[in-house]
Each structure stands twice: as C-alpha cells, then as structure tokens.
Simulated scan of single mutants.
Amino acid sequence: MAERYSSFSSGSTRWFLQRVTAAFLVVTLAFHFLLLHFFHHAPEITFSGSHARYSVPAYFVTMVLFLAAATFHGTNGIYNALVNQGVTGTPKRVAKWVLVVAGVLVFVQGIRVALALTGGA
C-alpha cells in the first residue's frame, strides 16, 4: 500500500482549523441550501429579502463566520495542495503570500457586500 503523505502535521493548528472549518462549512452550507434553495426559490430571492435577512444580527454573524471559514479553508487547502505537489523554497513563499493577500481581499470584499446588504454601507 502506498504511503500517505500530507503537508499537514497531524495535530497542528492549521490541520485542526482545516477540520473545524470543514465541519462548520458543512453545517452552514446545509443551512444555506435549505433557506435559499428549498424555502425560497431563485426567482423569489430579492435584494430586499437579502436586506431583511442580513438585518438580523444572528444571520449577519453566521454569514460573516461562513465567509471567514470558507476563505481560510479554501486558501489553506490550496496552499497545502501546492506543498503536497512538491512546491518548495521561493515559489512556496510566493504562493503563501499570494494566497494570504487573495484571502484578505476576498474577506474584505465579502464584508463590504454583507454591510451593503444590511444597509450599513
């Protein structure tokens, strides 16, 4: 049997956060699909409906946490996939910082959208 290799050190903080964010994403994605695909259908989704949902503090916080978890999970997963493929040295450092900057930009833009949906921006 082939030996398993992972750039994650089992028990490390990034390893732990990858699993915690995965579990959180499963729950919030289920919530998202139930709310926005089963209870409300695509033609019923409007800006005013989104504004009403985002005006509820618990919904707003949940969606911001969803954004943070998805951003971390995605960028951390891409980084580790690159490391698992053998990227080392300068390309590894460049990839890390490109992903950090991309993650921050995605998160900031997501916050801007969330605030716009509350009517706060």
Rank of each mutant, 00 (worst) to 15 (best):
R4G: 03
P57G: 08
F33Y: 10
A116V: 05
G119L: 11
G74Q: 06
L117Q: 12
A102W: 08
Y5N: 08
A116P: 02
F107I: 01
L35F: 05
P43K: 06
S12W: 06
G89H: 12
E44M: 14
I78C: 11
F107D: 00
V61W: 14
V87M: 15
F66D: 02
G120M: 05
G89F: 10
A121T: 08
L82Y: 09
A23D: 01
E44F: 07
T28K: 00
E3F: 08
F72V: 04
K96D: 06
V108N: 03
T71V: 15
Y5C: 02
A52H: 10
L17M: 15
V104W: 01
Y59P: 01
F24C: 00
L25S: 00
Y59H: 15
H40L: 15
G119C: 11
K92G: 00
G74E: 04
V61G: 04
Q109T: 11
R4V: 14
Y79N: 10
H37T: 08
L65M: 06
L115K: 12
G74A: 13
F66W: 14
V113E: 15
V87N: 03
H51T: 06
S48N: 08
E44P: 05
A116R: 11
G110I: 00
Y79D: 09
T90M: 14
M63R: 00
T88C: 02
F8G: 04
A95M: 08
F107M: 04
F8M: 09
V108W: 02
H41G: 03
G77F: 06
H41E: 11
A68Q: 03
G103K: 05
A42D: 14
S9T: 12
E44A: 14
A81K: 10
V83I: 14
G120Q: 10
V56Y: 13
L17I: 13
L65E: 01
R14M: 10
Q18A: 14
T75K: 11
T88F: 03
T62E: 12
H73W: 13
I78W: 09
A22S: 12
N80G: 09
F16V: 13
Y79P: 06
A30D: 01
A70H: 11
S12M: 07
T90W: 13
A102E: 06
A70G: 14
A23R: 01
A121K: 12
G110E: 01
A52V: 11
G49V: 02
S12Q: 10
V83N: 04
L67H: 04
H73C: 05
Y59N: 13
G74H: 09
G74S: 15
A58P: 02
A68E: 03
I45E: 06
G119P: 00
L82R: 09
V83W: 04
F31Q: 09
